[in-house]
Amino acid sequence: MGGISIWQLLIVALIVVLVFGTKRLRNVGGDLGSAVKGFKNAMNSEDEKAKDADFGESSDQKAIDEKTTAHTATSAEETKNKEQA
């Protein structure tokens, strides 16, 4: 007693579909899904920022690392081109 049975849930779902329509419910579901996805992305980016702060790696160090990687790749391409010539 006092619990909601499966039949009561089905009747409520049927009434909701009749009132709002399937197209509107589909749009609401899509909006809700994209909101949850955006929330997860924001949480992941916050976690990455926290990890970077924990390691003490500054944005200057990241820029230096990126330049070093780009320079190494360019040097490798130049060496490959010289070998082919």
Rank of each mutant, 00 (worst) to 15 (best):
G2E: 08
I4S: 00
S5I: 05
W7P: 00
Q8H: 01
Q8L: 02
L10M: 15
L10W: 10
V12W: 10
A13H: 03
A13L: 08
A13T: 06
L14G: 13
I15G: 04
V16T: 06
V17W: 04
L18G: 03
L18W: 06
V19I: 14
F20D: 08
G21C: 01
G21K: 04
T22R: 09
T22K: 03
K23R: 15
R24G: 00
R24C: 04
R24D: 01
L25E: 04
L25K: 07
R26V: 04
N27P: 00
N27I: 14
N27L: 15
N27Q: 15
V28K: 03
G29N: 13
D31A: 13
L32M: 09
G33H: 07
G33A: 13
S34K: 12
S34P: 08
A35G: 08
A35C: 00
V36D: 05
V36H: 02
K37G: 07
G38P: 02
G38H: 01
F39M: 02
N41F: 10
A42D: 07
A42S: 13
M43C: 03
M43P: 03
N44Q: 13
S45D: 14
S45G: 02
S45P: 04
E46R: 11
E48D: 15
E48T: 04
K49R: 11
K49Y: 00
A50T: 00
A50V: 05
D52C: 08
F55G: 15
G56W: 00
S59C: 02
Q61F: 12
Q61P: 00
I64F: 06
I64L: 04
D65V: 10
E66S: 03
K67N: 10
K67V: 01
T68G: 02
T68Y: 02
T69G: 00
A70T: 05
A70R: 10
A70M: 04
H71E: 15
T72F: 09
A73Q: 01
A76T: 11
A76Q: 11
E77P: 07
T79W: 07
N81W: 10
N81A: 15
K82I: 09
E83A: 14
E83R: 12
E83V: 09
Q84H: 12
Q84N: 15
